[in-house]
């Protein structure tokens, strides 16, 4: 027997969770605005938006994967290493377009490998992407990149605007986030690729029997999310003038999962949409910014993040209980 409140929550499905998260965001935002001096000024808001943009872009990429029924733990490693390599190539004298092309090609390759491992070799994505994350970082540091941190070259030109520019006072990262969110949202909603993604994420076997090319589809999702991760990395690097490969070891990837799960995209796949990502990003961004302004120690912040993620997973479990009949061996 579940408590009545939970039944209500479940009966109204996803819309409710999105709404709740949004209301919490509004309450939090209002609370911070009132009680935190310096929260509600244009500068801080711009900073907040800029800070959450990269998180948001990465969350869109992760969102696609999660809706498709998988997860990608290598996304941060991929972002860091691909962009760091690209920057190093440019620093080494390679023309910008050529370096960008190489960067894009490399992320596409990694996306293909990730997708292949999940779709064709059928390794559970949690494990395959965990392993590829190690491989990407290890390969990058071993072969490609000599320093922990690669600084931004001076000849980037218009690319630099990705992180630093403003359009009508709105920071460019926010616009990039908005554009990517819109494009991916439309892609998911109105194209065959999108509808198939939902179908395969909801029930892979059924989708396959129906004739959906599930395996190429999964590969496509990983390639798409790899491209988005590359863009996120460019935004990040140009905004802070460097790319620190050590970001791979940070908790960023868990924050991304936090955004996705908290926003209401069930980890079992096939549910939710880009709106959930946006709402989740707003809430987490506000929260992180608030904690920073409150001068909560970094380590304590991590502990709090962990607890929130735990709460999110518990709620996800209650709202989207896993089906004993369809859950697969090794689906952990």
């Amino acid at each position: 027997m579940r408590p009545i409140g939970l039944n209500l929550l479940r009966s109204r499905k996803m819309g409710t969770q999105e709404m709740i998260v949004f209301l919490i965001f509004v309450a939090l935002f209002a609370g911070f605005s009132v009680f935190l001096p310096g929260f509600l000024n244009a500068n801080n808001i711009a900073l907040l938006l800029q800070a959450v943009s990269v998180l948001g872009i990465l969350s869109v990429a992760m969102g696609v994967i999660v809706i498709g029924g998988a997860i990608d733990l290598s996304i941060v490693a991929l972002m860091a290493m691909s962009v760091a390599w690209t920057l190093q190539l440019i620093n080494g004298g390679m023309p910008v377009p050529a370096a960008l092309a190489i960067g894009l090609a490399s992320v596409a390759l990694v996306g293909l490998i990730n997708g292949f491992l999940v779709a064709y070799v059928e390794i559970p994505p949690l494990f395959s992407t965990l392993a590829t994350a190690g491989c990407i970082y290890g390969f990058g540091r071993f072969v490609l990149i000599s320093q922990d941190t690669v600084y931004l070259p001076t000849n980037l030109g218009v690319i630099e605007e990705l992180g630093k520019g403003r359009v009508f006072g709105v920071p460019m990262p926010v616009i990039v986030f908005a554009v990517i969110a819109a494009v991916v949202g439309l892609l998911l909603k109105y194209t065959k690729f999108g509808r198939f993604t939902y179908a395969a994420g909801d029930n892979r076997a059924a989708a396959r029997i129906t004739g959906v090319p599930v395996r190429p589809l999964i590969v496509a999702q990983f390639v798409l999310s790899a491209f988005i991760a590359f863009i996120a990395g460019l935004v990040q690097a140009t905004a802070i003038n460097s790319m620190n490969t050590r970001i791979t070891d940070s908790l960023l990837v868990y924050e991304i999962i936090l955004v996705v799960v908290l926003g209401g995209i069930g980890l079992s796949g096939g549910k939710g949409g880009i709106r959930n990502v946006v709402v989740g990003t707003l809430l987490i961004g506000t929260f992180l910014n608030g904690m920073t302004i409150m001068d909560i120690q970094f380590t304590t912040q991590n502990a709090i993040k962990g607890l929130i993620l735990l709460t999110a997973i518990v709620i996800d479990q209650i709202v989207n209980p896993r089906d004993e009949q369809t859950s697969q061996q090794g689906d952990i």
Binding site: V121, C135, G138, F139, R141, F142
Partner: peptide, 27 residues
């Protein structure tokens, strides 16, 4: 005395291979 990162690379590859063998053969 290999450069940093090589350990992660090798372990990642070993892990991937082992899981692939497990998934494709052992089961």
């Amino acid at each position: 005395g290999l450069q940093s990162g090589s350990g992660q690379l090798f372990l990642g590859l070993v892990l991937l291979t082992a899981i692939a063998v497990d998934v494709r053969f052992v089961r």
